[in-house]
Every structure is written in structure tokens, then in C-alpha cells.
């Protein structure tokens, strides 16, 4: 039995395993950058890690603060601009990208723009950033939803998943055939998309979580994989890497924030 781990560590590993060796990878901030670093260290040493700000082929030394954080790597191989980062995606050179989610529907369409009315929002979320264009043209997209929600109907349609399901995405003629979201990670499990209907189903469940608990978050009749598995227990090697590389990630957002604020207060007083 490997050493004790945190849920957050398990989530990072689930995402990292979506990166295969020799792939070109667009990383987003937060969990995906740590996952990218873990993949590069343990599973995919020849992956090319890229950020949309034009930082291409970098080796992260620290978890990136944001998508333009060149301070967290000691140099990188190719400095290009944002425009070229997207046109190379449009041309098909990006294998997999990672996006965070505010709302998601059963076909993997995303909202990261607002809750409530767009013009008078109950909550104004960040917006598209790169999301809409990346999920349109990367070969695969991995979705991470840590604070968001499953909905029948998005309050705002920011980024295209499988549209109305079935072959509607491919038929629209707007996207490369076969592209789209391949996985959604939440704090309760891993969801994948049926190859024919494109409806998401629960394919893997995290420890201590029941199927009923997962169903409670989902407003439609969620399908469950016949061979539903429990997320594999992290290895010591994986846990050690994450804990050293990104301790705040191991702690999770709330605890890390609490500890950071406590320390900031101490620094402020101490001078």
C-alpha cells in the first residue's frame, strides 16, 4: 500500500494520465500545469508543454501563477505570440488542451462567462479567454470542474462541446472531425463521452464517493459505465512529485488560501 494521499493529488494524477508521450499540450492554469509537470516527469517525457501566451516547450520549475508566467520556468525553447499559438491549434498541431469549467451540459458544452443574465449577471465569470478556440480545434480537450455545476441548459454558451450530441459537432462543418471533449474531471469522479450519442457518462469514481452522491449533482438521468472503476490509488512516486512541486495543490484551494493568508498577515506585521 502506498502512502496516504489527498483528493487533490488524485485529481492531478487523473488529469496527467491524459497526456501521452510525444504529444503537444496546451496547459491551463491551476491543476493542469501541475498535471503537465507530473506527466512530463513520470509518464510523457517527450511531451511539448505550451501556454497560449506564447511560451512553448517549457520545463516548469514551479506551478505557474497564470498563463503568461515565464518566471516559473528557467527559459523555454520557443517564444511566439498569442496569435500564433492559436493558429497552430487551428492547423491541427495541438493534441490535447485543458480547460476549467463553470457550467457544463450533458454534451460537454461549456459556460465560463456568467451565471444568470449575460447583460446583468448574477455572477460575472472570467469569460472565454482561450477556451472557445482551443476546444474547437485541439484534437482532444480535457475538462476540469472543481467548483462548477452540471446544468440542463447553459446560462451562456461559451465553448462548444458536442453541441446537440450525436454527430452534430462533426456535421456542423465548423470543427475538425473527431475533435471535442474526451473527459471531464470533478471532485467526485471522471466522466467520458459515449462514442455514438456523445452524452457524458460516469466512467470512474473517486474513493469514498457513491454513485448516488454523483447523481445528486447531475440534473439529468446520468448514465453509468457498466465497468465503473474506482480511481486508482496514487503511487508514492506520484504523491512525492506533486507534494514537492506544488504543495498548495496537494492542500487544495481552500486550505492553501487559508495558510497563505495567515502567512501574509504574519509577513505584513513582521516587516
Amino acid at each position: 500500500m502506498s502512502k496516504p494521499y489527498t483528493l487533490q493529488e488524485l485529481l492531478v494524477i487523473a488529469v496527467a494520465k491524459e497526456i501521452h508521450d510525444h504529444e503537444n499540450v496546451i496547459l491551463g492554469v491551476g491543476l493542469p500545469t501541475t498535471a503537465g509537470a507530473l506527466a512530463k516527469a513520470l509518464y510523457a517525457p517527450h511531451a511539448t508543454l505550451m501556454m497560449e501566451s506564447g511560451i512553448i516547450d517549457f520545463e516548469p520549475l514551479l506551478p505557474l501563477n497564470h498563463i503568461a508566467d515565464a518566471h516559473s520556468c528557467r527559459g523555454f525553447s520557443y517564444a511566439t505570440d498569442l496569435f500564433s499559438a492559436f493558429t497552430m491549434t487551428y492547423r491541427g498541431f495541438v493534441d490535447v488542451c485543458f480547460l476549467g469549467v463553470g457550467q457544463v451540459d450533458k454534451y460537454g458544452n461549456l459556460n465560463t462567462t456568467c451565471i444568470g443574465d449575460y447583460y446583468k449577471p448574477k455572477m460575472r465569470l472570467p469569460g472565454s479567454g482561450g477556451a472557445c478556440d482551443f476546444i474547437s480545434y485541439a484534437k482532444r480537450t480535457v475538462l476540469t470542474m472543481l467548483g462548477g455545476e452540471f446544468v440542463e441548459r447553459l446560462d451562456y454558451f461559451t465553448s462548444p462541446g458536442y453541441l446537440d450530441g450525436g454527430n452534430s459537432r462533426d456535421q456542423s462543418g465548423l470543427f475538425p472531425v473527431g475533435s471535442g471533449p474526451t473527459m471531464l474531471l470533478t471532485t467526485k469522479g471522471v466522466f467520458r463521452f459515449d462514442p455514438v450519442t456523445k452524452e457524458m457518462y460516469l466512467s470512474q469514481i473517486h474513493p469514498r464517493i457513491t454513485v448516488e452522491q454523483v447523481r445528486k449533482d447531475v440534473p439529468w438521468n446520468l448514465k453509468i459505465a457498466d465497468d465503473l472503476k474506482e480511481s486508482p490509488r496514487p503511487t508514492d512516486e506520484e504523491i512525492d512529485f506533486i507534494r514537492r512541486f506544488a504543495p498548495a495543490m496537494s492542500a487544495g484551494r481552500e486550505l492553501a488560501m487559508e495558510l497563505t493568508i495567515a502567512n501574509l498577515m504574519k509577513q505584513g506585521k513582521g516587516g
Partner: peptide, 11 residues
Amino acid sequence: LEGAIATDIFR
């Protein structure tokens, strides 16, 4: 990039 035609960013 034409994919955005499917979204509310366009609409």
C-alpha cells in the same frame, strides 16, 4: 476561427 459561430460569443 469559425468554431465560435456555434456559441453565444457570436450570438
